[in-house]
């Protein structure tokens, strides 16, 4: 029982970070049609901002300012660069965003060096939680790092907030409609590009949240963006390009797979790729992908 519970919890914690990065990726792909390889770099930028601001002014200041900063960075990137690639091929989009990711990585390396920046957790997030005190079905002493639990809570709350925004607001209705048929929205007078710019900003905010809460766990170094981008991109493809529920489902699947193979290192290293191959062979559009899209 204890083993099972802890593996599930660890699985959730691993999924949490993939989920946040994959959500941003798939949100941007679903609306703008852009395969954004710079998304990992945005996450990394979020983590660096978080370390620097947190060291200087404390974590609570970082908590407020990093998402705002990344929102601004996102808007500038979309207006200044990405929008010129909407009509171009996916290959061009991948090249330009991949290039951008390299530039961001190198700039960070120049400023802060190639080594890991220590990210001190705030005092309220340090230590462990004695789970057996809250969950009577656990036997004996069962503890879990507090920060990892916080990451799980934050990431699922972010997912919930995004779903509420999309499902129950006027803005969300427009974005959902735009994801399905942006041309028809234009025929109905809606300037969808303006909304999609904001969506890009929201994607960057989610990356900021991932950086803030994921940074203390992943280490903050200039290769971080790429390290997380590849599995997150796989999450998006397996979930179905442009499908938000698909991204959530696929990240849970990957998280659980990684957690439950932890005892077998050789399998753990390849398990998500193996899963991806099997799923995509059986279902080329991904778990919840739309028919005909990137199939």
């Amino acid at each position: 029982m204890n083993y099972l519970f802890l593996q599930v919890l660890t699985g959730l914690q691993i999924s949490a970070l993939y989920m946040l990065i994959a959500l941003g990726l798939t949100l941007i792909f679903g609306t703008l049609g852009v395969v954004n390889f710079a998304h990992g770099a945005l996450f990394m930028l979020g983590a660096y901002f978080a370390v620097v601001i947190s060291d200087a002014f404390g974590f609570s200041v970082a908590l407020v300012s990093v998402p705002i900063l990344l929102f601004i960075v996102g808007i500038i990137l979309e207006r200044g660069l990405i929008r010129f690639f909407y009509e171009r091929s996916h290959t061009d989009q991948i090249l330009v965003t991949f290039g951008l990711a390299i530039v961001i990585g190198e700039v960070l390396k120049t400023i802060y060096g190639a080594n890991n920046l220590p990210f001190a957790k705030p005092s309220w997030g340090s230590g462990i939680v004695k789970l057996h005190e809250y969950l009577p079905f656990l036997e004996g002493f069962v503890a879990y790092p507090k920060w990892r639990l916080i990451l799980v809570v934050v990431s699922f709350s972010t997912v919930a907030a995004l779903f509420l925004l999309l499902q129950f607001t006027r803005f969300g209705l427009i974005v959902r409609a735009g994801m399905r048929d942006s041309q028809m929205l234009a025929f109905l007078g809606v300037n969808i590009t303006r909304r999609f710019t904001i969506v890009f900003g929201i994607g960057a905010v989610i990356a900021a949240i991932a950086g803030l809460f994921g940074g203390p766990i992943t280490q903050v170094e200039p290769e971080l963006g790429m390290k997380l981008l590849i599995p997150s991109f796989l999450v998006v493809v397996v979930g179905g390009m442009g499908s938000l529920p698909g991204a959530v489902l696929a990240s849970l699947l990957f998280g659980m797979a990684l957690s439950f193979t932890a005892k077998y290192a050789e399998i753990q290293q390849i398990i998500i790729y193996l899963l991806a191959v099997v799923i995509l062979l059986v279902r080329p559009r991904g778990l919840m992908g739309k028919k005909g899209l990137m199939e």
Binding site: A177, R180, D181, L188
Partner: peptide
């Protein structure tokens, strides 16, 4: 527009 209700399809026309 798929995924939207009848009413949402009308609301979206008046945005």
């Amino acid at each position: 527009i798929p995924g939207l209700t009848v009413e949402e399809n009308l609301i979206i026309a008046q945005v």
